[in-house]
Design a protein around this nucleic acid. Structure first.
Lengths: 251, 251
DNA sequence: ATTTGACATTAACCTAGGTTAATTTCTATG
DNA sequence: CATAGAAATTAACCTAGGTTAATGTCAAAT
């Protein structure tokens, strides 16, 4: 990982971890969590725009995102980039269980980010000793697939306005549980180029489409703040279905 | 599931299962497999074009594909369809671990297909009693994500020729281990409309692009047979990387 | 052998989104 | 507060791929 990363001194005990409410360990009993903690190797804070791992390289850590935004992306030989997913607080990062295989994508922070680190070597041991955790991870991974299927539909079968509407709603709904006080406005650190590389358009066309959405009073995006102006119309434009997005276990 | 489905009388014991060489139980010791077998509820043969489950409906079985082709897809409110993935022999089907949540996509056979059936209720029990299996499933699911990321790149950032080249190579390499005697020609049951709905194009443009690939001596597709004519050029056109595709544990 | 419906093929035309390039904000830094 | 690089915005023009629609081919069913 990048050298600017600093390992924090204070190590939050897993039982006090704020992301427990959001992510993987939600349903694990207290005792289970305390046992899991011993596999953890630490916690670290990364500045914005830090590469966490690079496509093609072997990488020996797994992470849970504590706070901040991370993006996963692939780079093609012609230089273009496809962003695969945004990883937010409570999400799992770099889940590729075989430590010998090089990563197939890269990960980079968008904002300052705090990660909780597990060495990959401990994973199989953790699985064997705590099958509960393996089951939880399977569940999360299955939901990640569901999300990436939504992205496939979004890029493969929708027009520009629909694609943006969907992206905004998807992110809005994943940010909401972290900041319940948030109204219709969330902090949104993506540039228009990031948006373009997420939904398979060019940045110029993203800009045009944003203007059209703004002029129609659907969303407003500026200075890294996104405001949902007309939620119902946006939902219907995007063909948005909450169920396919949420990372929390669904009741 | 469809009523035309017939449950076969003869039940292959899991230890003799031909897909064991390909799929999930590859690394499980014999004794483990015998124990897993008791969770199985049966084996069934479905004709081509059978709906296995439908988007929006709760579905209480999990499957391993024994022989045949299955496609997963989503249908939008405007009637268009996005194919998400082809499920081949040895692959896992409908992995959505929470039985109460409706399926987010549909599954339909393309050819006659034999499935091995697990009731979903047994899954958590299986996980708890056999963490080995949970770990294997995690591994497979992680690889499914890798594949769907490849699809995202394919649709989001490549032109028509590149998309088709990639699809052909991806499928070719997944079919190969099943039929080692196959030369450069494989059976390829997709229609041009299926191809279009997989790579985010229209069937008319798929036809045009196929002609162009044929005229340049790259691939030949007719009568449900696909022939790879110029493998190296196809690989370079597609930006194809084997590692991201294979479902087998890599080394 | 004929019918039928599904699938493939082609042509003519059109448009959503891409390309290029210039200009205008921001925002971080000295 | 000045400056530079990053990000946003806009306009003019272009093309890859979409649309419509007609025709051809094949295989299953009678």
């Amino acid at each position: 990982m990048n050298t600017r990363a600093k390992k924090t001194n204070h190590q939050t005990p897993c039982t006090l971890c704020p992301v427990r409410q959001l992510g993987i360990f939600q349903r694990l009993p207290e005792a289970e969590v305390i046992k899991v903690q011993q596999y953890r190797s630490g916690q670290c804070v990364l500045p914005a725009k830090t590469l966490i791992y690079r496509q093609g390289e072997v990488h020996n850590h797994l992470y849970t995102v504590f706070t901040g935004w991370v993006m996963l992306y692939k780079t093609l030989s012609n230089g273009s980039r496809q962003i695969l997913r945004y990883v937010l607080a409570g999400d799992f990062l770099s889940f590729q269980p075989d430590a010998r295989v090089p990563m197939t994508h890269s990960a980079q922070t968008l904002t300052e980010t705090t990660l909780c680190v597990f060495p990959r070597q401990n994973l199989m041991q953790l699985f064997n000793e705590h099958p509960e955790v393996a089951a939880q991870i399977t569940l999360i991974t299955a939901r990640d697939i569901t999300l990436s299927y939504e992205y496939l539909v979004n890029i493969g079968r929708k027009n520009a306005r629909e694609r943006l509407a969907f992206l905004f709603l998807e992110i809005y709904h994943r940010v909401l549980p972290q900041f319940p006080e948030t109204g219709n406005t969330i902090i949104f650190p993506l540039t228009q180029e990031d948006i373009a590389d997420t939904v398979g358009l060019t940045l110029v066309h993203v800009n045009r489409t944003l203007r059209s959405l703004r002029e129609e009073g659907l969303v407003q995006l500026s200075h890294h703040k996104l405001t949902i102006l007309d939620y119902p119309r946006l939902v219907s434009l995007a063909g948005f279905n909450l169920q396919n997005i949420m990372n929390q276990p669904l009741l």
